[in-house]
Write a protein that binds this DNA or RNA. Structure first.
Length: 500
RNA sequence: GUCGGGGUAGUACAGCGGUCAGUACGCUGCCCUCAUGAGGCAGAGGUCGGGAGUUCAAAUCUCCCCCCCGACACCA
């Protein structure tokens, strides 16, 4: 049996989840569900990154102990993912003792390989905020958070010899051209690695909220080394059965902002530790809100848990996955979300199910007959049902174009609606009617199988209305008879009132 | 600055050498009900960023110019 190990980044718990983190998790969920439908052994990992100075500070300003604070934010993440029907297999926390042990083992390997040395970290520091600021963030020697002047400061730190791995990384990228997806993100990485690598600081003395550095008690392991290790510690590395079964990861899904750490730093760490390297890094784009990046200072952060109060999880999932290609940035607005739900889900899929179940429920005869629908669909959409499955599979396993997959599915739905309109089944007598119903219900059953990965709740509801138990992809071909007992249920989607 | 990606109907995009330049949403008019404010038919709307060149033929190839956007080690 094939295995499929897919991960999201672990999310930093200095704040609750936002639309972007939800997007990452939804992509991973759809892929995980698809591979399950293909009867593969799937392990879908998500979790939280809970160490570091920023979290200590966030806890302090929330008036909680650090542990209390992270526990409460983790709960918010778990609740949000539950509302969005995220089917993760494991939720890892970097505060899990097993993870902490694994990180220490991992650092020891890098140390024994001679890749860690003591040096001096020089960076911008904001004294009133007590925070180091990245070079790129500092403008005119001012702190980007508070606007006050920053100082150049030196601090003792341990470094990882990233520079040593330049040639090995370049060789690796050459042998694995699909390591970074899409390829323009791969090119960006390669160009930057060619330009040269600086060693990376992996410890800090400014915080104790983290994993102690085993070779020098004053130091705490810095977030990236701690965080990246989650992908193997979650499999009980070293020595865990799950590790043997699932590693290397098939897909790390990441936002474009953390591509560097996954495509460069993580492989270098693994090379140093002598652990094999994941197969692919899938880098997606961002959601903007009215053209602007979501940020606290603009107060335009979209909270997915809030959205689920007004819109169904499937409506949100549908919109995020089909509105743009996942590589690109795209703009989020509630009016666009609402019009996708009304225009495509309500009047497309919802309408199809409503009309066919209404007619079929009253029909007493056999639902069988010629399968002219494939030919019909080929004429209307340019593909038939079995090539739809193939197209969706390519979109989810090769090109990662969830938008194209959903558009093709919806075009098949549109075709079935058109078929009903053409055939006018409400005017037909028994045998002919059975045939038309067959040509709609069998395809609908197959489409529902496909939809289980994208819109799990909707798919289940269709199965229940057409009287069929939820099925896997192996059942996704036309049978001789349609045997479900159809019973019209409540509408699949609610119309959303659009306020602009 | 270095390296990448783009500029096509109101909007989002497809087409990347050869049928009158397409699709979706929106818009206008008429028609209809099996269905959730659903559906059907018809229609308006673009000198394909600007200029030059290659070619029998260019949105599509080449060159120049203009403008947007992305990566460059905090962030999904």
């Amino acid at each position: 049996m094939e295995k499929f190990y897919i991960t999201t980044p672990i999310f930093y718990v200095n704040d609750k989840p936002h639309l972007g983190t939800a997007f990452t998790v939804i992509i991973a969920d759809v892929l995980a569900r698809w591979h399950r439908l293909k009867k593969e052994k799937v392990f879908f990992l998500t979790g939280t990154d809970e160490h570091g100075e920023k979290i200590e500070k966030a806890a302090k300003s929330a008036g909680k102990s650090t542990k209390e604070f992270v526990d409460s934010v983790v709960l918010q993440f778990k609740k949000a993912w539950e509302k969005l029907d995220i089917s993760y297999d494991k939720f890892i926390r970097t505060t899990d003792p097993k993870h902490e042990e694994a990180v220490i083992r991992f650092v020891k390997l890098l140390w024994n390989n001679g890749d860690i040395y003591k040096g001096e970290y020089i960076g911008w520091y904001c004294v009133p905020d007590e925070t180091f600021i990245a070079d790129s963030e500092v403008k005119d020697e001012k702190c980007p958070n508070c606007g006050r002047p920053v100082e150049r400061i030196k601090e003792e730190a341990y470094f990882f010899r990233l520079s040593r791995y330049k040639d090995r990384l370049l060789g690796f990228y050459e042998k694995n051209p699909d390591f970074v997806i899409p390829d323009f993100r791969g090119k960006e990485v390669i160009n930057r690695v060619k330009a040269g690598l600086n060693d990376l600081d992996i410890t800090r003395i400014s915080t104790t909220w983290g994993i102690g550095f085993p070779f020098d008690k004053k130091h705490t392991i810095y977030v990236w080394l701690d965080a990246l290790t989650n992908y193997i510690s979650a499999l009980d590395w070293p020595g865990g059965e799950k590790f043997d079964e699932f590693w290397p990861a098939d897909l790390h899904i990441v936002g474009k902002d953390i591509n560097w750490f996954h495509s460069v730093v993580w492989p270098a760490f693994l090379m140093s530790a002598g652990v094999s390297i994941p197969k692919s890094i899938l880098v997606h784009g961002w959601w903007t809100v009215s053209g602007a990046k979501m940020s606290k200072s603009l107060k335009n952060i979209v909270d997915p848990s809030e959205l689920t109060k007004t819109y169904s999880a499937d409506g949100i999932r549908y919109f995020l996955l089909k509105e743009k290609s996942i590589w690109e940035d795209g703009d989020f607005s509630e009016s666009a979300l609402a019009s996708a739900i009304n225009g495509e889900l309500v009047s497309g899929l919802g309408n199809l199910v409503a009309r066919v179940t209404t007619i079929a429920e009253k029909f007493k005869g056999d639902i069988k007959g010629n399968d002219e629908i494939d030919e019909y669909m080929y004429k209307v959409c340019g593909f038939d049902l079995s090539s739809l499955i193939k197209k969706v599979d390519d979109c989810l396993c090769k090109t990662y174009r969830t938008d194209i997959a959903l558009k093709d599915i919806m075009s098949a739905v549109g075709c079935l609606n058109k078929y009903i309109t053409d055939k006018e089944p409400w005017k037909l007598a028994s045998a002919e009617l059975g045939n038309v119903l067959y040509n709609v219900l069998e395809p609908l059953r197959i489409i529902s199988i496909i939809l289980r990965s994208f819109l799990p709740e909707t798919a289940d509801s269709i199965f229940s209305q057409i009287g069929v138990e939820p099925q896997d992809l192996e059942k996704a071909k036309m049978e001789q008879h349609f045997t479900g007992k159809v019973k019209r249920g409540k509408n699949l989607f609610r119309l959303v009132e659009i306020s602009v």
